[in-house]
Computed example of a mutant assay.
Amino acid sequence: MTALTVKRADGILTVQDMGRPGHLAQGLSRGGAMDRRALLEAAALLGARAPLAAIEMAGAGGQFSVDAPTRIALTGAPMSATLDGEALRWNATHLLQPGQLLQIRGARSGVYGYLTAAGGITSEPWLDSRATHLSIGIGTPLAAGDALPCGDDPAPERPAHGLAPESRFDGGTIRVVDGPHTALFDADVLEAFYATAFTRGPRGNRQGVQLAAEARFTTDHAKGLASDLIGPGDLQMTGDGVPYVLMAECQTVGGYPRIGTVLPADLPIVAQAAPGAMLRPRRVSLDEALAAARPEEAELRDLAGRCAPLVRDPATIHDLLSYQLVSGVTAGDDLDRG
């Protein structure tokens, strides 16, 4: 068993995995990582067969240490990271030794970064998940001094791997499929909505993200609308016509009209959009939405196939002369050591 200790918490740090699906009838939304793809990327980099419980870092990271050698993966929103002062590559794995200090600073773009230990965080599960669910009080944000139990690294000898990052950290186009309330909006309102370039508004958290624009998108048919089932991706309008994309910790029922639903594949774009980033909705048909749907197991296989051993830049290796770069060639101090 390995302990991953939080020496300092600079952002909002929580333990997250893929959440708790299947409990909507009990009033519990899925929760879990805001950027689910980042956990899939970490699993692929570490050679894991399934996503692991990790530390989700909102805005910034902090300082961390371990008490046993373990590989870590850094994924999600790129953040400045160093190990004992030496810069680390993001979207890659690194070996962390006891006594070393891992420091992760603020996000260079995006919002949510992820620190995943190769053995995964093994805190006590609740309803088959270790995810913190802030909106209903399951767990709390991590603080300095917290020591998280992790499984032992199953393959500490595995070389460091890297993965080319995706461009999902600065906004972009989000595909939206019609939902049960789309027909409540007049054609001109729908046309205006899909012609609008929104910015990620100042209001947003793990429950939902505001789409900001001067225009408002209302319907006269919203009065008396019965509450019904809602979930992550639903695009819900407030009474004054401001759209919100519901996210991982959204409520399970709601009565506001929903103009459509963001495809699951594009939710990481919404999650990683920092305030002011541009988000453009694009209306797609049900057939297009179904064609875009992929099991996360298939995504993990594809990501694993794209991982490659990490090639270090010799200019950044401070102890380069300690390596035997060519057979028979050494640093030249063999006799001195003898």
Rank of each mutant, 00 (worst) to 15 (best):
P202M: 11
A226I: 15
A212P: 00
R206Q: 09
V189F: 09
G233V: 11
P202K: 12
V189K: 02
R206T: 03
E191G: 08
P180N: 02
T196S: 11
G208Q: 01
D188E: 15
A187G: 00
G201T: 09
H221V: 08
H221N: 15
K223D: 15
A197Q: 15
L229P: 00
P202F: 10
L211A: 02
Q236F: 10
G179F: 01
G224D: 08
F185L: 01
H221D: 15
G204N: 05
S227I: 11
A197E: 15
G204H: 04
G233L: 07
S227F: 10
A222M: 12
G201F: 08
Q210I: 04
P180F: 10
Y194E: 03
A226N: 13
G179I: 03
T196W: 01
G204P: 00
D186S: 11
Q207R: 11
E191I: 00
T199R: 15
G201I: 04
R203N: 14
F193Q: 02
G201Q: 05
R200L: 05
D186R: 05
E191C: 01
A197R: 15
A213R: 03
T196L: 06
H221G: 08
L235A: 02
A222W: 12
H221I: 00
G233T: 10
N205K: 02
T199I: 11
Q210L: 11
Q207I: 08
L211W: 09
Y194V: 09
S227D: 12
K223W: 10
T182Q: 06
E191V: 00
N205P: 07
A226T: 15
F185P: 01
T196E: 09
T182N: 01
P232H: 03
D228E: 15
A183L: 13
T219C: 09
P202T: 12
A183Y: 01
A197I: 06
H181K: 04
L184V: 10
D186G: 14
F198C: 07
G231Y: 02
I230L: 07
E191F: 00
A222Y: 09
R216G: 06
T196P: 06
L229N: 12
L229A: 14
Q236W: 06
A226P: 09
S227M: 12
T182E: 09
V189Q: 03
R203M: 12
Q210N: 11
R200I: 05
G233W: 01
A215V: 05
L225C: 08
E214C: 00
D228G: 10
D186F: 01
T196V: 04
A192V: 00
G201A: 08
D228L: 12
